[in-house]
């Protein structure tokens, strides 16, 4: 059902929009369902925003990690914390700029504080924030603030070995 809805939500009304990466509005439960569907893999959920410069600065590192480790069972999920009205105008072009060629998500129908608490009750709400799940779907760590390639790689490599 989630994936049937996914296609419908990605408005492609603007000229040229079809060449941009797909962005689907999801609530917190749908996002968690997506993480669950990816279990068996190591999953990194990265919360970012169009207004957050460090978020966009760390995107290339995450995309590179995905490219290198996809076949080893690494899955990357970008979730934008922005108004859904700016999906086509802002979110999709930013993702395209950073060579994100896979489906991404934008938070919808979930109050900010509910999302923050459900992702990790210790999370302050500071962006960017990455939430890493092991192959069983268990949350293992949270990385808050802009990170470099190696900082992500150090965490993921150990998890991908298992």
């Amino acid at each position: 059902m989630f994936f049937l809805l996914a296609g419908g939500f990605t408005a492609q009304g603007q000229p040229g929009a079809e060449s941009l990466p797909a962005v689907t509005p999801v609530d917190i439960d749908q996002l968690m369902e997506k993480v669950k569907q990816d279990s068996g893999n190591v999953v990194l959920v990265n919360a970012w925003a169009s207004w957050c410069k460090p978020c966009q600065e760390e995107m290339p590192a995450l995309v590179k990690l995905r490219k290198i480790n996809y076949n080893k069972g690494f899955r990357l999920i970008f979730i934008a914390i922005d108004d859904t009205e700016i999906i086509d105008r802002t979110i999709r072009p930013i993702l395209k700029k950073h060579a994100v060629s896979f489906p991404s998500y934008i938070l919808s129908r979930t109050p900010d504080n509910v999302f923050i608490e459900k992702m990790n009750s210790k999370w302050s709400g500071a962006l960017p924030a990455s939430f890493i799940y092991d192959r069983k779907g268990t949350p293992v760590t949270m990385l808050v603030g802009g990170k470099k390639y190696q900082q992500f790689a150090d965490v993921l490599q150990k998890l991908l070995q298992h």
Partner: peptide
């Protein structure tokens, strides 16, 4: 109070 999104303190 509830938390909110913001920029991380550098």
């Amino acid at each position: 109070a509830p938390k909110a999104f913001g920029c991380s303190i550098k």
